[in-house]
Amino acid sequence: MTVDVPVNGTSRREEIEPRMLLVHFLREQIGLTGTHIGCQTGQCGACTVLIDGEAVKSCMVLAAQAEGHEVTTIEGLAPAGTLHPVQQAFWEEHGAQCGYCTPAMVLSTVALLADDPDPDEHAIRHALDGNICRCTGYHNIVLSVRAAAQKVAAGAVPEPFLQR
């Protein structure tokens, strides 16, 4: 079947098998590998993307279901060579370790802050319950989300970083 899914602001018209999941569409069909797969059953949250601004696990959605909805992946969060304020906060507060859950954590944070610009610790932990991290014990992730909230509230914009 043919689907037309708007990803990161660009229409992606592709011929796919009807059973194809959105996560496979993103990774295999259009090569956006920043969306990761960790469990296939909707628990770990490593495949989280934004659909119309809501955090959604892309292993739980058929690509066909995303047709006509705006999909944002980690690659589309900030212009190339820059980091979104949420990404900057995760960098500064040491919120990433191995990096496997990280893109999804960042996107879940973006969705949280859109709903609740000033979340307290409880709200942050509750909002991130669908994203498992095995490295950080969540401590620095919570600090990162708090820092991100401040940056976003202060009107921070994407900033360039040194690519190594």
């Binding site: 920043g34 980690i74 690659e75 960098w91 040194l162």
Partner: peptide, 11 residues
């Protein structure tokens, strides 16, 4: 700050 963090953060 982790020197390799940006590429982990931006996918």
């Amino acid at each position: 700050k982790r020197l390799d963090a940006p590429q982990k953060l931006n996918g």
